[in-house]
Structures are given as structure tokens and as C-alpha cells.
Design a protein around this nucleic acid. Sequence first.
DNA 1: AGTGTAACTTCCTTGAAGAAAGCCCGAGGG
DNA 2: CCCTCGGGCTTTCTTCAAGGAAGTTACACT
Lengths: 164, 164
Amino acid sequence: MALRSDWSQEFCPVKRSLDVLGDPWVLLIVRDVLHGRGRFDQLRENLGISEAVLSRRLTGMIEAGLLTKVDYADGARIRQGYAATEAAADLLPILQQLSLWAEKHTALPAGGGHMALIHDACGQETTQGEVCSACGQVLLPEDMSWDKPWKHARERLQPAGTLS
Amino acid sequence: MALRSDWSQEFCPVKRSLDVLGDPWVLLIVRDVLHGRGRFDQLRENLGISEAVLSRRLTGMIEAGLLTKVDYADGARIRQGYAATEAAADLLPILQQLSLWAEKHTALPAGGGHMALIHDACGQETTQGEVCSACGQVLLPEDMSWDKPWKHARERLQPAGTLS
DNA sequence: AGTGTAACTTCCTTGAAGAAAGCCCGAGGG
DNA sequence: CCCTCGGGCTTTCTTCAAGGAAGTTACACT
């Protein structure tokens, strides 16, 4: 491979994970799919990604076992979207820790606000990404909401395999 | 920007973190620096990265606040290497969870083996990346060793600011 | 037939990745 | 004092993906 090394055969698990997850779009797509935004146009619009790149990534992520195609109803019509697999749902701690890291170590742009990670199972905000800092339970997508003050919305996540 | 979007001004903290961490080399360099391999040649050799790309990444990571230059003695000579900042040390949970994710969701190549994350403070292996699954303490670099059976070595991590 | 919309696909230009070769600088050897 | 060595970059060159835009397909509704 020329532009990007192939790390799928590395012994080091960090390198193997980055062989799949090393592209930033992949993690952002997982995040959106866990939020129920699993349709092509929703992803394109929310991420600001070019359609060619999005199409390539979705194909690759299905091959990598991160996504599956699922049907959904668009009026009388049946279309297809994308849902998270177990492997993708297991990335939730990483996404949440990336978010916690950014809030600690990057500058919040003007007009932004703190995104709180709410563990709906206990009702408290968690300051850890993997295990709830308030109640000690392991954090699962279906028990989490992300409170985004700049959108005035608290978005509930959803379990693997489901769309919108 | 043409080849890569600029996400430093995004409200979403996940996007802001990936603006800095979205390149796979960045996380691999942080990993190596936390292992004490902070010299240019050590990084080049261990990562298999091209020298031009390594040089660009190191410069960028200093600007991003992930690394600092530190002196080290090469015989009578004083040379410079790279050490992790607090921001880089705070990426330890993410690195460990990437490793745990890969061991669960990617195929181990023939001849490899399970990399155990050892919490030296309690002596046990942890199956979580952020908080020790055995003793419940928050995991810090200076309390961790990564046991790599394919290298027959247990490598001790080191605190931010130090080299080799 | 014509319009609309979701989901792609193709085409083009730009610029980073990666490989290899060259450069700089201080130490030690002759 | 000149020459070599080796770490740490920098430069050059080719290849190939990112991103933007325009085209295509498929189906439903008017």
C-alpha cells in the first residue's frame, strides 16, 4: 500500500485497531450511526463529508464488520441505511473518552458549550467514558444521552443493529 | 483545506479531538513516547514511518501541545528527543481501549499473543483502559506495564515529561 | 411524461504519503 | 586538521486518496 500502511497483520493490538479506526471519518460515522443517523444523506449532511468518500468509507466499514445494511421505510418505499454492529457499539468508550479529552485539552470555540454525557440508567452525568463515574456501571449506548447545549438537544443513543 | 478538513473550530468535542488525533501516526507516536522511545531514530525504526512524515508529525504534535523537546546524553554529546506532555499522557485510556478493542474484534496474526495490560500499582492485569478492573484505581502511565509476549518483554510506561 | 429524492458513481484537481537520497553538525580517529 | 560516522532532519519525486461537482439509477408521486 502506498498512501497508507497495512497494519492488519501487526502483533501490536494498537496498530491493528488503527488499521481499521485510524481514519477520522470512521469514528465519526460510528458516532452518527449510534445516534440513529444511519442514512446516507443524514451522514453526508451532518458530517460535511464528500459523497465519494462517504460511499467508500461505508463500504469499507461493512467489510471491516463495523456496519450492517438495514431496511427502513421512506413512506411507501423501502430504502436501506446503516446500523452499528457490536464491534461498533464497543467503540462507545473510545468516542466518549475522545470527547472528554477534547473538553480538557482543546479550546472550545466561541458559542459552544460543555457536552454532558448522561447515564440515563442512573440519571447522572459521567466524567468517565467506560464506566459511569456516578454509579459504577459499564456504559452502554442504549443507556446514554449526549447533551449538546449548542443544539439545545439531549440526544439519546441506541443499541447496535437499530436505525433511527 | 483540500485534503483534510479543519475541525478545530467545531462545537462537537469528538470532532475537535479527531482534528488532532485523527491521524493514526499521532496515536502511535504517543504510545511510543510513553514507552520511552522518544528519539527520532527509535520512532522511525519501531513505527516503520517515513522520515519526512515523522518529521512533519513531530512538529505538528509539538504545536498541538502533545510533545515537548527534551535533551538526552548520547555519550559526550547532548541530543534532543521528544517527551509526552500531560495532554499526551491523558491519551493512555484511549490507547489501552484501542488495544482491548482490537483484541476483541480483530484477528490475531499467526505467531502473535495476548498483550496484557498490567497495573503495577496492584500487580493485576486490567481488562479496562481507564480504571483498573482489579483494584478500581485510575490508570496512570507510570503505574502501567504492557506485556508483549511476541517480544518476550514486559515494557514499563513512564510519566509525562520524561525520556528513556 | 415529468418531477423529486435518496443513494450512489464518475471525473477532475490538488496535495499528502511514502521511498530514497541528500544535508548538517558535532565527536572521535588518524 | 581533515575525514568519517551517525543521529536528525530536509528535499525530491512518484503515486494515489481527498474533496468538490456533476452525472446516474431507481422508484414513487403528480
